[in-house]
Design a binder for these strands. Structure first.
Length: 822
DNA sequence: ATATACACGGATCCCCTATTTCC
DNA sequence: GGAAATAGGGGATCCGTGTA
């Protein structure tokens, strides 16, 4: 039969010793289709370059005869061919060695100890990645396919009979078609339980939300349930009902929030307890979990997506939310929040509470559904660029994304893939140590008027592209007509690295990401909203990670020299821009990595833009400097110790009165809300008025309030994240002490928990903060001295210092009559 | 295990010296 | 008077969280 088809979920199976890809997707009529396809499996043996034809023929013959026994299974090399390939950009002769089964390739590779073979490559990709590269059945792209329909066929061991799809097709041909629209069927879910530890409590209810579908299934009954509530007998039936509804809705994506770490493993654990099967897969299989620290839950045929993971890698860096809790993320992207409901153990809930609980549960899924819709375009975009199944796209980290993007495109360059580093290689790389980073200009503290700020577009990536930097293009020796890095200090020596002018695959590939980044940034500029900003940032992240990837010890294409060179160029271009700006007569206030801010010195905007154009004319390749914005005022302060200007800390106000605050305590979550609010007020007021008068009065008022204990304790809570298991801490910090208290109080904590506490008055004479900390709900009075001198004062002291005001003197000199009201 | 370096700043740790306490 | 305990200064280190 012929149909159109969009691949969504990828899986594979073995049949009669061979590998087959099993791809679940849809056609445009919404029918669910499974296609079964195979591809040749092979890897490469790269030959030493001095071999004559006779030797190679002999070697080929020898390889073709390889037979081996893998755990009792007989297997052999199917065939072997000689090819002209590229490896790390260099021409090589390589033998393509075909194996019967993908799993055998390691063992076959191990048999190739012949001296003629220089390297073995290409046997460490996942089968799915290999398959997609080989047959080009790219995820979430439309195809016109034809093939034989399997209907109760015994081919492949009767695979189609156990599969809940409309058609199971043995693929014969597939052609990509330009169609784009695809509205996936989505079902979001969320569970409520009586204990947080996986499987330790009863599951009380499950909510399900999809397009025109809302349901809360529960066995906890009350009067007058909402119309979306459906009752079941008990927890066991709840689990069955859940599976039933998933089957009925038949979603392409089953989406949760932190569901890899909570909802799905919980459901599985409870099902195990009742000895029932959680038949969620299209083949009625149960969800499978990866081993390791970070659980991932996989359901056959339905893509299980844990939105939290995708948001974390692709967006977290650029989000306002301070935690990635559903509540905060929903607030930022949907302008909606969780329903207010104080969760208690079900035994403590009153009849009337249940309705609220149902609603609360439902709404979590509603939020997840909303978020999925918001992030769907990005998941789609990432999937299309990187060409990995969306299951991986939604979970992998940035280095894997970059790496997969490269692997899926190597064929365009006739390149043999590099292997993953071994454990020893990783240790070696770590030993070399870090490379010198970017340049940060030390600002002179002060309040400045009329500023302009320039920044480079995707600086590192544009440098990689323009100077052709990569592991493969690195030249061993200096050559004429090559790209030459600035001088780099390596140990005590100064060296330069050289890169070929012949375009390498890595820089060429990055261009694609670079251009997408530009496109989405422009989209944001013309249509600024949360979502276009997020998308712009997502590609900013991807683009920015290209350099991080090169310097990442676990990367296939890691290169210390390339990484050092990229950063040397970053410093060079930033410093050059600073110098040119100063030479033009501007006063450079600060610069950090890829940006320069300076006062306009009476120059018109037109003149500034002309200057910018001139700067751009002098930049190589795709490097581009752009105007970030014009600013009415900007404030820089000194560091806490000493008089030097603090780097990475500033506040500016643009001509539409938008305030941009970087690095200040205002934006740091490990300061109490009061400090942050006060500093925020002060910064904004000063930027607006151009002087400190109003803010000083405000601070005095706050100080008075603190002393009179008028401050709400809620505003004094300090939040610090536990970054590792308690046992690994060498220092006994306040948040570690609080974490221990939490354990005593049976509050579950783990690495990642946000620890909350306040500093209280204590009788003891200890000066250590950790001896004064209390849990938010613990009774006690806040420590006036601490909040004055270690929270409020440090947050605003440096700001007033810019105006020559010593807040410390004012605060301590309260007995002076001139400050009687204080 | 899962992108990089630079930077701030709080809190503790640790060593040293001066002062206080105790016998 | 001398030993032990304590206070406090200051740099090193740990730790978390920012900017880019």
């Amino acid at each position: 039969m012929k149909t159109d088809f969009i691949p969504v979920d990828y899986d594979y199976f073995d049949f009669q010793g061979r590998n087959y890809a099993k791809i679940i997707g849809r056609n445009s009529k919404g029918k669910r289709i499974c296609i079964i396809d195979s591809c040749p499996v092979y890897f490469w043996a790269i030959l030493k370059d001095n071999l004559n034809k006779k030797k190679i023929d002999k070697l080929l013959k020898k390889i073709r005869e390889i037979k081996l026994d893998v755990k009792g299974r007989q297997t052999k090399v199917e065939t072997a061919e000689l090819h002209e390939k590229n490896y790390l950009g260099k021409k090589v002769k390589a033998i393509k060695i075909f194996a019967t089964n993908y799993k055998d390739m390691h063992d076959v590779a191990d048999k190739l100890g012949m001296p003629e073979i220089e390297k073995r490559r290409g046997y460490d990709l996942s089968f799915i990645t290999h398959y997609i590269i080989e047959n080009k059945i790219d995820p979430l792209c439309w195809y016109e396919i034809s093939g034989e329909v399997l209907n109760n066929s015994d081919e492949f061991g009767g695979i189609d009979t156990n599969l809940d799809v409309d058609f199971c097709i043995k693929l014969e041909s597939a052609k990509k078609i330009p169609k784009t629209e695809f509205n996936p069927r989505v079902l979001c879910y969320d569970i409520e339980t009586d204990a947080l530890e996986i499987g330790k409590g009863e599951i009380l209810m499950i909510s399900l939300v999809g397009e025109n579908f809302k349901k809360v299934i529960t066995w906890k009954k009350t009067k007058n349930p909402q119309e979306y509530v459906e009752y079941v007998k008990d927890e066991e039936e709840l689990l069955n009902k859940f599976c039933e509804y998933v089957k009925k809705v038949s979603p392409d994506f089953l989406v949760g929030y932190f569901s890899d770490g909570f909802d799905l493993p919980y459901l599985k654990a409870r099902a195990d307890k009742f000895k029932i099967k959680l038949k969620l897969g299209l083949d009625n299989s149960q969800p499978k979990f990866s081993r390791g620290v970070n659980l991932t839950g996989k359901i056959k045929g339905i893509v299980h997506i844990d939105l939290l993971k995708f948001i974390r890698t692709a967006y977290a860096q650029y989000m306002k939310s301070e935690t990635l809790s559903l509540n905060e993320v929903a607030k930022e992207f949907l302008n909606d929040t969780k329903k207010p409901f104080k969760i208690k153990h079900s035994s403590e809930l009153k009849q009337k509470d249940w309705n609220e609980y149902y609603e609360y549960n439902l709404h979590d899924s509603v939020l997840t559904f909303g978020l999925f819709q918001k992030f769907w375009p990005d998941l789609l975009e990432f999937t299309k660029i990187i060409q990995e199944p969306i299951f991986n796209i939604s979970r992998f980290g940035l280095s894997k994304h970059i790496e997969n993007y490269i692997l899926h495109n190597l064929h365009k360059f006739n390149e043999i893939p590099e292997k993953q580093p071994t454990y020893d290689e990783i240790s070696q790389r770590k030993k070399i140590g870090s490379v010198k980073g970017a340049f940060v200009y030390e600002p002179t503290p002060g309040l400045y008027e009329n500023l302009a700020m320039f920044d480079f577009t995707s600086m590192h990536t544009s440098i990689i592209i323009s100077m052709n930097i990569s592991k493969a293009t690195l030249l061993e020796t200096k050559q004429k007509n090559s790209y030459e890095s600035p001088e780099i200090e390596e140990g005590n020596k100064k060296v330069k690295y050289y890169f070929s002018k012949e375009k390498g695959f890595f820089p060429l590939l990055l261009k694609d990401i670079f251009e997408k980044r530009k496109e989405f940034k422009a989209e944001y500029k013309t249509n600024p909203n949360r979502m276009t900003l997020a998308r712009s940032n997502a590609f900013k992240v991807l683009s920015a990670s290209a350099h991080g990837y090169v310097g990442f010890f676990g990367a296939r294409y890691y290169s210390h020299e390339a990484s050092a060179s990229i950063l040397a160029f970053v410093r060079k271009f930033n410093i050059e821009t600073i110098k040119k700006t100063q030479k033009k007569g501007f006063n450079v206030i600060f610069a950090d990595t890829d940006s320069v801010a300076f006062t306009r010195e009476g120059k018109s905007k037109k003149q500034i833009l002309e200057f910018l154009k001139k700067l751009n004319d002098e930049l190589p390749g795709v490097m581009h400097l752009e105007l970030e914005d014009f600013f009415k005022r900007g404030l820089w302060v000194s560091t806490r110790k000493g008089t030097a200007g603090a780097k990475k800390k500033y506040a500016m106000i643009d001509e539409d009165n938008n305030v941009k605050i970087r690095g200040f305590e205002t934006v740091r979550r490990d300061w109490c809300q009061l400090s942050r609010d006060v500093q925020n007020y002060v910064l904004r007021q000063i930027l607006k008025d151009g002087n400190e008068k109003k803010s000083l009065e405000y601070v005095k008022k706050i100080v008075k309030n603190i002393k009179q204990r008028k401050i709400n304790k809620q505003d004094l809570i300090i939040k610090t994240q536990l970054k590792k298991p308690l046992s690994e801490y060498k220092a006994t910090t306040p948040h570690v002490v609080v974490a221990k208290k939490m354990i005593e109080n049976k509050i579950p904590i783990s690495a990642g928990t946000l620890i909350k506490y306040y500093v209280s008055e204590t009788k003891g004479k200890s000066k250590l903060v950790r001896d004064k900390v209390k849990l938010p709900e613990e009774p006690g009075e806040y420590n006036i001295d601490y909040y004055l001198n270690r929270q409020i004062l440090p947050a605003v002291e440096n700001i007033f210092q810019v105006f020559g005001i010593s807040l410390k003197e004012i605060m301590e000199g309260k007995k002076q009559t001139t400050l009687g009201d204080f």
